[in-house]
């Protein structure tokens, strides 16, 4: 059946209406489809995906690097311990070349130092000190080489000496090979530690004898109202300690150390000067 004019007009109007109503939707749909296609491409295309992801990954790596100890510190100790227990041999194989090199370097340095000392000691084989040393070896019943090796590997040096009032912990005199300006602080802390230890262990009337830290040893010589503290570098043997005690006793016997409570500058100056004169040549005297 043929469409009448009226019907055609109606169809045209309907088409126009449809166009008016649907065109924006169609355009929007088309944009969404294009965008979807782009996204699909970005996901499927490795290069595009990498370009988008890289900045985020880099930022995360920086964050992890900065906060690694905070984020993972607590897990590291147990993890390393576990790893060592599980693969002890592998770890040893990995570390051995590094630690071995360090030990070798240290030993090389030490041997060089000892060698230099031996060279120094043997510079003049007919000097008075060398002859004395040979005589000492003879009397001690050991070879010259052995005694020399013992001497050069076991050297000690008196670094500082204090006379400290027992009760107050005030330094009454101080002599140092190096400049130590805060001697009163050292004397106070030493007295505090000494008193604390003696009180804590309550061993009758026994007094603290020795304190050690790293390569230093503090030997303490008590007297009724004061004590003498000596700081020695190295680990002295008994012979050295006897020699030092003799020096300390001689000083305290000849030098009047006031028992009164006042610690005046005059007393400090007089005693410090006396200490310096008495102990000035101690290290050299000990070496001869």
């Amino acid at each position: 059946m043929e469409m009448g004019v009226k019907d055609r007009n109606a169809a045209n109007h309907l088409e126009e209406l449809r166009a008016i109503l649907l065109t924006p939707d169609r355009e929007s749909q088309s944009t969404v489809m294009e965008r979807l296609a782009e996204l699909e491409k970005a996901l499927v295309d490795d290069k595009a995906f990498e370009e988008r992801l890289t900045p985020h990954l880099e930022a995360q790596v920086v964050h992890l690097q900065k906060n690694f100890p905070k984020l993972f510190g607590q897990f590291l100790g147990p993890a390393i311990k576990h790893q060592i227990e599980e693969e002890r041999e592998v770890i040893i194989d990995a570390l051995y070349p590094i630690i071995g090199k360090l030990i070798a370097k240290y030993l090389k340095e030490e041997i060089k130092r000892i060698s230099e000392r031996i060279d120094e000691s043997m510079k003049d084989p007919f000097s008075l000190s060398t002859l004395k040393f040979r005589a000492k070896a003879l009397f001690a019943g050991v070879s010259y080489q052995e005694l020399l090796f013992r001497e050069v590997t076991n050297r000690h040096k008196l670094e500082e000496i204090f006379i400290i009032q027992k009760d107050s912990g005030l330094s009454m005199a101080h002599y140092s090979l190096n400049e130590v300006t805060r001697s009163q602080m050292v004397a106070g802390m030493l007295t505090g530690i000494k008193s604390f230890l003696e009180d804590a262990f309550q061993k009758g009337t026994q007094e603290l004898d020795t304190l050690e830290y790293e390569d230093y040893r503090i030997k303490i010589y008590p007297f009724p109202r004061f004590y003498v503290a000596t700081v020695i570098e190295g680990s002295p043997d008994q012979e050295y300690e006897r020699f030092l005690k003799k020096y300390v006793d001689e000083f305290c016997a000849k030098e009047p150390i006031p028992a009164r409570e006042e610690v005046t500058q005059v007393i400090q100056d007089r005693l410090s000067l006396a200490l310096k004169e008495h102990f000035h040549g101690f290290n050299q005297a000990r070496d001869q």
Binding site: S168, S171, Q184, G188, V263, T264, Q265, V266
Partner: peptide
């Protein structure tokens, strides 16, 4: 003269 310097705890 003995009091030009003095230490006090």
């Amino acid at each position: 003269s003995t009091k030009q310097g003095i230490s006090k705890k």
